[in-house]
Amino acid sequence: MHMADALLSPAVGGIMLAASAGAVAYSAYKCKDDLDEKKIPLMGVMGAVIFAGQMINFTIPGTGSSGHIGGGILLAALLGPFPAFLTITAVLLIQALFFADGGLLALGANIWNMGFYACLLIYPLVFKPIVKKGLTPTRITVASIVSVVLALSLGAFSVVLETLASGITALPFATFVTLMMPIHLAIGLIEGIVTGGILVFVYKMRPELLESSLENKKLPKDISIQKVLGVLLIFAVVVGGGLSLFASANPDGLEWAMERVAGTTELETSGDVYGNAGEIQEATAILPDYGFKDGDGSAVGTSVSGIVGGGITLLLAGGVGYLIYAVKRKKEKEA
């Protein structure tokens, strides 16, 4: 559900960039107290997991469409809402800059649609209440499915509102929303099941991870998460470097809806803002569309993209967590 720049007017794109920047700043501020230093490596590893996971589009049977995980609920359940939001922001930033996945003008909208609702709204208001009476595999699974469906539905509806506010007449509101909502409901159901499965697996390995996020408490000092980190890192490498080769070739839910409404997934744009954003992205994209710049579409290019992208995201997300923790420690020493 990565929006391209052509879906937004410069005004709407700017507003969404400002809104997401505010949410990022607030999350970084809250992480001063809420970030568990033992989870900083997990921020990096989970960033790599989500980057890799979003490379795999799964087919939605009977529709000709496909979808991929958003990952916000999964991140929030393991990291807490504010570190999760910073991590999904890192994923989307790396995708836009280095892989031309989602536009630069649309970056704020993508962060809001895929991160804000899941991490900062649905996780605390829906996921936590469902499991507050006790973490069990059944509760985790139910909470995951309900939360992902709601978060993805809000994100899909926001895409429609953002295009409406931008005056994209090629995508009339009624028709666009009628297509966007059902297809993302189906995508959400599949992502919810995947999210629940991963969380149940982690819960059985190290239940304290989910408990600490749920209760907003730090992990006990005698708890080690090295085994979980190792398993998740291997998972990210296997998914990004191998399973990504088997991703569905069908258009994702947004592209599918656009094609049925406007007859194309490539809307025409004009103006300096779009041109400048495109030039910047062309210059920074080292592996555009998750492949080499020569456009040969080779499997090697996809695998390299999965490994390189996951590695960069790991460094960025983990580095942000470490920087916040380092600033916190410095202020504590000065005090």
Score class of each variant (00 low, 15 high):
G47E: 09
L232M: 15
I187M: 11
L8G: 00
G311E: 10
V177L: 14
E255Q: 14
I280V: 15
I190W: 07
T313S: 08
L287Q: 01
G301T: 05
F58K: 02
L233R: 08
G242A: 08
T59K: 06
A25T: 14
L254D: 02
F99Y: 14
S9M: 10
L75Y: 02
L75A: 03
A151P: 00
V261I: 13
L135D: 07
N276I: 15
S303Q: 11
D294M: 04
D101N: 14
G301H: 01
G71D: 07
G44D: 06
P129A: 04
Y29I: 00
G70K: 05
V91N: 04
S20K: 03
K331V: 14
G241I: 12
G134P: 00
V159Q: 06
K32I: 10
N276A: 14
M16Y: 13
G62I: 08
G319E: 03
K328W: 07
L219C: 01
V24R: 06
T163C: 12
T63E: 12
I187R: 03
Q95G: 06
I94E: 01
L316R: 03
R206F: 07
E37Y: 14
Y290A: 11
P137C: 00
G263Q: 06
Y123E: 11
H68M: 08
P81Q: 03
G155V: 10
L86C: 10
Q95E: 15
M55G: 10
I40N: 05
F99T: 12
G67H: 02
A48C: 02
L315K: 01
A247H: 02
D222S: 12
V49G: 09
G192Y: 02
A317H: 03
S270L: 10
Y26H: 04
A151V: 08
S147R: 04
I225F: 09
D101H: 13
P61T: 02
E279G: 09
L125T: 15
L17Q: 13
G311L: 03
V228C: 03
Q226N: 13
E334A: 14
K32A: 11
E268A: 14
G319T: 07
G155I: 03
F246Q: 12
A106W: 03
K32H: 15
Y29G: 08
G295M: 00
V142H: 02
C119N: 07
A335G: 15
L150M: 11
S20V: 07
F82A: 09
I145P: 02
G102C: 03
A23T: 14
L232A: 10
D294S: 02
I307E: 05
G64I: 02
G241P: 12
M114E: 11
L209G: 06
V131P: 00
M46F: 07
G319R: 01
T264H: 02
G297P: 08
V142I: 15
L229H: 08
I60C: 01
V160P: 00
V126I: 15
A6C: 02
L323W: 13
F201Q: 07
A257V: 09
A165L: 15
G44Q: 05
D36Q: 06
V142L: 14
I60Y: 01
E211P: 10
L219R: 04
G108N: 03
K218G: 13
A21H: 07
Y203T: 00
R139W: 12
K39T: 04
V12Y: 00
